[in-house]
Write a protein that binds this DNA or RNA. Structure first.
Length: 482
RNA sequence: CGGGGCGUGGCUCAGCCUGGUAGAGCACCUGGUUCGGGACCAGGGGGUCGGAGGUUCAAAUCCUCUCGCCCCGACCA
């Protein structure tokens, strides 16, 4: 036939990012089997491949959380309404998206319970019982848990009704220690997200309008997705003494005086999976950072005739024996798919390195490696695999970060005025715009009204924005955001 | 929550306007040949058309309600 064939000949084909980024995102998340929709409105199923990614993230972040002196604990899923209501701003912020439990068995409850949207309230209540003396401080507790927010509009990983996260909750004797903790954990997040997820971020402080409900100050790390929209990748809150006052969390200091504690809370969620997808993905699918990829290298055996088969299988077993303990290796020896099919499949799923092993490789006593990020092929002698493969993965990790950073930096522009900020987003609708902000809510409102961009954060590191600094102003980054 | 769009085998979709009792490609199963960039041949299984109600001799198709999903906006990790 002469008419052009449909471009999408295969089930695994994806919409191009530039054609429709949202559609590309939904397709890749489902086709790569990270997650799927569920019968529960707004709630998704995280499939083994996606959950494996989360588990690797958890492991790396949990280590950092413990290395900074925190311990894990677990608090109830249900929060009594009376506790949630104590902090006015807090309940006002979360009430619209609370799911409530009103019955137990066949009996209506005297007091309804919120399914935790966050745990400040119940943890505050417990801290008031546990903290008596300055000797009890600081309290440094983290919780890995699920939370629920009755969102009207949901998106896989980015905003779902139920999601997984960690929430740290700490109590301190004074404000300097409290603020130190807030910034310490912000830095832990920056380090984790940049070095393990290969996502460059701007760490900074939120404006009053973007502050967490009930917090004195909120800090965040902000990333830029491939479509030019910003994504809040983690938050660290300076809670001040708001919760201490309403939950009566006090201690006796060295002079015997009763004092309110100073608190922090901080969290990152499964939203980071979405950030990885949208930061590194391309038209072929995912590109997973090796440090968190569930499969770091996939072996695709190849044979032409049965005679090759035994030799190839034997060599594959040798390779597995040699490097199975060094990298997260998967051997796909399924007979019903051809090598070519597997190449496409694993590229779509973002596996950092593919190892092709066929008769030629057996003859050479080597394997053919192909990088997902650059597609560069390289024959690696068997004896060098255990050294070369980790180095290759490290280089891919570095390359993904550098590519993302170049994109992020190129997409960050400076503006001399509010009007320039508005003009930028009127023309582009993408990227980050830094500007000297006068601190007024009116400025933010005007920009938002005019072009939909919001103040993402006031970056702490001003090395790129020195020229914008001026008295009475703060450098602020604006972007259209998820 | 407002505006728009869509729900038909596992997936993508045709059929709906002009009612007559369901199709294609891919996927799946069996056998065989294949396997270095998405293999091929032959045979085969699977849907009652998101759900409920209504109109009609007859509904995937028309009407009402409802649920879900997607996109764009207002609010949030």
């Amino acid at each position: 036939m002469s008419e052009s064939l449909p471009r999408k000949q295969f089930v695994e084909d994806l919409t191009d990012q530039t054609d429709d980024f949202s559609r590309w995102y939904n397709e890749v998340v489902r086709k790569a089997q990270l997650a799927d929709y569920s019968p529960v409105r707004g709630s998704m199923v995280i499939r083994p491949y996606g959950y494996g990614l989360w588990e690797n993230m958890q492991r790396l972040l949990d280590r950092r959380i413990k290395d900074t002196g925190h311990q894990n604990a677990y608090f109830p899923l249900l929060i009594p309404e009376s506790l949630l209501k104590l902090e006015a701003d807090h309940v006002e912020g979360f009430a619209p998206e609370c799911a409530w439990v009103t019955e137990g068995g066949s009996e209506k409850l005297e007091e309804r319970y919120a399914i935790r949207p966050t745990s400040e309230a119940i943890i505050g209540h417990m801290y008031s019982r546990w903290i008596e003396s300055y000797r009890d401080l600081p309290v440094l507790i983290n919780q890995w848990a699920n939370v629920m927010r009755w969102e009207k509009v949901t998106r896989l990983f980015l905003r779902t009704a139920e999601f997984l996260w960690q929430e740290g909750h700490t109590a301190h004797a004074n404000e300097p220690e409290c603020l130190e903790e807030v910034l310490r954990m912000l830095e832990v997040y920056r380090d984790f997200v940049e070095n393990e997820l290969a996502i460059p971020v701007y760490a900074g402080k939120k404006s009053d309008s973007e502050r967490f409900a009930g917090a004195q100050d909120t800090y965040s790390i902000e990333a830029l997705m491939r479509d030019g929209k910003a994504l809040q990748a983690g938050t660290s809150h300076h809670l001040g003494q708001h919760f201490a006052r309403v939950f009566d969390i006090t201690y006796q200091d060295e002079q015997g005086r009763r004092q309110f504690v100073w608190q922090t809370s901080w969290g990152v969620s499964t939203r980071l999976v979405g950030a990885i997808v949208m930061t590194h993905g391309d038209d072929q699918g995912l590109r997973l950072p090796p440090n968190v990829a569930p499969i770091q290298a996939v072996v695709v055996p190849i044979w032409r005739k049965d005679a090759d088969r035994a030799a190839v299988s034997e060599f594959v077993a040798k390779v597995k024996q040699a490097i199975g303990g060094v990298v997260r290796l998967h051997v796909d020896d399924r007979d019903q798919y051809t090598p070519g099919w597997k190449y496409n499949e694993y590229e779509m799923r973002g596996v950092p390195v593919r190892l092709e092993i066929g008769p030629k490789d057996v003859a050479n006593n080597a394997v053919m490696s192909v990088r997902r990020d650059t597609r560069i092929k390289e024959s690696i002698p068997f004896d060098q695999l255990a050294q070369r493969l980790p180095a290759l993965l490290a280089d891919i990790q570095r390359t993904l970060f550098e590519q993302a950073k170049t994109f992020r930096d190129d997409s960050t522009v400076l503006a001399g005025s509010k009007e320039e900020v508005i003009a930028h987003f009127a023309a582009e609708k993408r990227g980050l715009v830094a500007v000297a902000w006068d601190g007024s809510a009116a400025f933010e409102a005007e920009v938002k009204e005019a072009c939909g961009a919001t103040l993402r954060c006031m970056p702490i590191d001003l090395s790129r924005f020195g020229s914008l600094e001026k008295p009475g102003h703060r450098v602020a980054l604006f972007a259209r955001a998820y």
